[in-house]
Amino acid sequence: MNLRDLKYLVALADHRHFGRAAAACYVSQPTLSTQIRKLEDELGVPLVERAPRKVMLTPAGREAAERARRIVAEVEQMKEAARRSQDPEAGAVRLGIFPTLAPYLLPHVIPRVRARFPQLELLLVEEKSDELLARLRDGKLDAAVLALPVHDEQLHTEFLFEEPFVLAVPDGHPLAGREALALDELSEQRLLLLEDGHCLREQALDVCRLSGAHEKTEFRATSLETLRQMVAANVGVTLLPALAVKPPVARSDNIHLLRFSDSHPSRSIAMVWRRSSAMSGFLERLAQVFGDLPADLLAPTGAVPAAAARQSAAVPPPRSDWG
């Protein structure tokens, strides 16, 4: 038994297909299949149920694959620890970040990361939070920027900042002429929200529960930018996080932003990594850079005059492909 064979088993568990698993491991399908059979012979139990069109792991196979996954992750961390002992601030870091934060936070922090760690290769992965957590636990990511809470005793969470929400309403809405509102004034509103799977949806639902507001269930957006455009088209109102309404994001002259005057709904952002990570010391320093944002960048934005909105609209919005 060797590390290569364990990687083959993990790939087969992930893809449930010999051809795709072989392609992921950069070997031929017969090679991967042969090594899996050798592993079965060595362990003395079948690991795979081979059907004409699909592959299923046996109970023993599932347990072996999970153990193999942990072993492979530990070996990768061992290699990373050895490399970082020579130069802790060089090399590659695989960092995950969720879609309703990535395009708004990264323009502010990436230049600072490059200045602080000039030798660092930062590999960014943008996915929904559940997928980021799964990759983090499997060792496919070194760390992830996520919204709290994160319930996993095996993971360390380093708080970064609190990001307030503002209410976005279309031009002509009864609230459009105001700069602020009380949280309970949301009780008469039906909010546009993101589809299932986005953590921002759950955060907005928490605000709805606190204020007595309801969801406008006829429409669910696939991205934050879609929500913004639906507000501009006078379809409804929504909650937007503060970073999503700050430059370099362009303002629309037919969307008005209102801060909350009494309660201050927000989301807590943290960097998360495995407690067993060999990179913990470096990740603490990286988290400090991510969390060191100017106070005005996280201040809730009130209504902006149309002239100012039209002037800032010359700045193009960030682009991102979201699932």
Rank of each mutant, 00 (worst) to 15 (best):
V125L: 13
L9A: 05
I110R: 09
A306F: 01
E49T: 10
Y26T: 00
D171R: 08
Q154D: 13
N2W: 05
V10E: 02
L122F: 08
A242W: 03
G197P: 09
K79M: 08
A81V: 08
L141S: 11
G172E: 04
L297N: 02
T222E: 07
P107W: 10
G291V: 01
S28W: 06
T238I: 07
E80T: 09
A13W: 05
R84H: 07
Q35E: 09
V245P: 14
A299E: 07
A102Q: 06
P317E: 06
E215I: 08
A65V: 03
A134I: 03
D87T: 06
G91H: 08
S187E: 07
R116F: 12
R37G: 04
S263V: 10
K7Y: 01
L258K: 02
D138I: 00
T58L: 09
V27M: 10
S280G: 15
V231L: 13
R94N: 04
R62F: 06
A13Y: 04
L193G: 02
V304K: 01
G61F: 12
S252T: 00
P316C: 07
P88K: 04
R84S: 04
V272A: 14
A51V: 02
E158G: 04
T34D: 06
L136N: 08
R62L: 12
V245Y: 11
I110W: 12
L298P: 13
A24S: 11
A204Q: 07
E127W: 14
A23F: 14
H214A: 09
L124G: 10
I36Y: 06
V235N: 06
P107S: 04
S277C: 13
V72W: 08
Q189E: 13
H17N: 15
I97T: 03
A81C: 05
A144F: 11
S276H: 08
F159W: 10
P103D: 05
M56H: 14
A232T: 00
L3T: 04
C25F: 07
K38F: 03
A314T: 00
E188K: 09
E163W: 01
E42V: 00
L183C: 09
F165L: 09
L141M: 12
L132I: 05
A176K: 02
G302P: 12
E40V: 02
D253G: 01
L167Y: 00
A213S: 13
V27K: 11
L105W: 10
R228G: 01
V169W: 07
A82R: 15
E121D: 14
M230Y: 09
L192K: 04
L293Q: 11
V109D: 07
G91N: 06
E76Y: 09
V93L: 10
S266H: 15
S85N: 07
D152P: 15
T222N: 11
A21Q: 01
D206E: 15
L224S: 14
T157G: 07
R285A: 14
S129A: 15
L146T: 09
A168E: 03
A22W: 13
A306N: 01
A144P: 06
R84W: 13
L43E: 05
R69L: 11
L101Y: 08
Y26E: 06
A233G: 07
A21E: 01
I36N: 03
S33W: 15
R70W: 06
T58F: 15
E188S: 15
R20W: 05
L120I: 02
L43R: 14
